[in-house]
C-alpha cells in the first residue's frame, strides 16, 4: 500500500542556527504527505533548531524551506499558520490564563487579528480539548496544573489551529506513561484517519520506532541515518549517533525494533 507520495514540507540546502551560531550547516530533507516523521539525536544535535526553522519560527541561515513545493516565504505568515502548526518548547504560561484561553489562541490564524469579540468557534475548541483529555480541566488556570497537563494544553492549542501539518518539539516531555501512549496514539490517529502530516522531535527511541513511519537521526547538524525504523534503529547507527552500545530486538507487541542498552 504505497500511494504516490507528495512532498509537503522540505528543507533545501537548509542551514539553521540561533543568533550567530550555525547548528545545522546544510541539510536536505523532504517530508511526505500523511506520514509521521521522528527526528532523533543527542542533545545539541540540531533537532529543535531544524524543526523551528522548518516552521519558519527561526529564519534560515542559508538555503530555503519549501511548503507544498513553494518557498515558505512566498506566503504570508498567517497563511502558513493555517497550513502548518508548531509546538515550540519555549511556550510561556501567562500567569492566570485558563486552559481554554490558551487553547483559544490556536484559533488566531483562522480568525485573524480583527476577530476582536467574535464568539469563539466552540466545536473546534471542544474537539481539541477532548482529544487531549482536557475537557474537565478547561476552566482551570494553566499555572495550577501539572507539567503534563500543561503540555497537553499546548498540544490542544496546536490542534485548534486545524492544520494539515504539525511540527511538535518533544511533545511527550513531562507526560506520564499513560499520557505518552495516549498522545502517540493521537498523533498516529491524526495521521491515519485525517491524513495529517506530523514531524516531531522525540527522545524516546523505542517510542519513535513504534509510532513513526520514518526516523531521521541527526548528529552535529547532519543526517546520519534516515529511513523506516528497522533501517535506523540498528546497533551501528546507535553507536554512531548516540555513542550507545545496544542490542536491538523485535518489540514483542508490534514487531518493530526495540533497543536495550548493553
Amino acid at each position: 500500500m504505497t500511494p504516490p507520495t507528495t512532498t509537503v514540507l522540505a528543507g533545501d540546502g537548509l542551514a539553521a542556527g540561533h543568533g550567530r551560531t550555525t547548528v545545522v550547516p546544510a541539510l536536505d530533507l523532504a517530508v511526505e504527505a500523511g506520514t509521521v516523521t521522528a527526528l532523533v539525536g543527542p542533545n545539541g544535535s540540531g533537532k529543535s533548531t531544524l524543526l523551528m526553522t522548518l516552521a519558519r519560527v527561526l529564519p534560515p541561515r542559508g538555503g530555503r524551506v519549501l511548503l507544498d513545493g513553494e518557498p515558505i516565504t512566498a506566503r504570508s505568515s498567517v497563511e502558513v499558520a493555517r497550513r502548518l502548526g508548531v509546538l515550540p518548547q519555549t511556550a510561556v504560561v501567562p500567569a492566570g490564563a485558563t486552559v481554554r484561553e490558551v487553547v483559544e489562541q490556536g484559533r488566531y490564524p483562522q480568525l485573524g487579528p480583527w476577530a476582536m469579540m467574535r464568539r469563539r468557534d466552540d466545536s473546534v475548541m471542544e474537539r481539541a480539548l477532548r482529544l487531549t483529555g482536557l475537557l474537565d480541566l478547561a476552566d482551570r488556570r494553566l499555572d495550577s496544573l501539572s507539567g503534563g497537563e500543561r503540555q497537553r494544553a499546548w498540544i490542544a492549542m496546536t490542534l485548534a489551529q486545524q492544520t494539515g501539518i504539525l511540527l511538535l518539539d518533544e511533545p511527550t516531555t513531562y507526560l506520564d506513561v499513560r499520557h505518552q501512549i495516549d498522545l502517540m496514539r493521537l498523533v498516529r490517529g491524526l495521521c491515519d484517519e485525517h491524513g495529517i502530516t506530523v514531524v516531531m522531535v522525540l527522545h524516546d527511541l523505542n517510542q519513535a520506532a513504534r509510532y513513526a513511519d520514518r526516523l531521521v537521526a541527526l548528529r552535529d547538524g547532519t543526517v546520519r541515518a534516515d529511513g523506516p525504523p528497522t533501517a535506523v534503529l540498528t546497533p551501528p547507527v546507535l553507536r554512531e549517533v548516540f555513542d550507545v552500545d545496544a542490542v536491538v530486538v523485535p518489540d514483542p507487541v508490534t514487531g518493530r525494533p526495540w533497543f536495550v542498552a548493553r
Partner: peptide
C-alpha cells in the same frame, strides 16, 4: 490599541508560539 490587542495576546504565550501562530 484595540486593533493590536489580538496580536499582543499571542505574544503573552512566548515569541516562538506567537510566530508559529503567524504573528509578526
Amino acid at each position: 490599541a484595540a486593533l493590536l490587542a489580538r496580536r499582543v495576546e499571542t505574544l503573552t504565550l512566548g515569541d516562538e508560539v506567537a510566530a508559529g501562530l503567524g504573528v509578526a
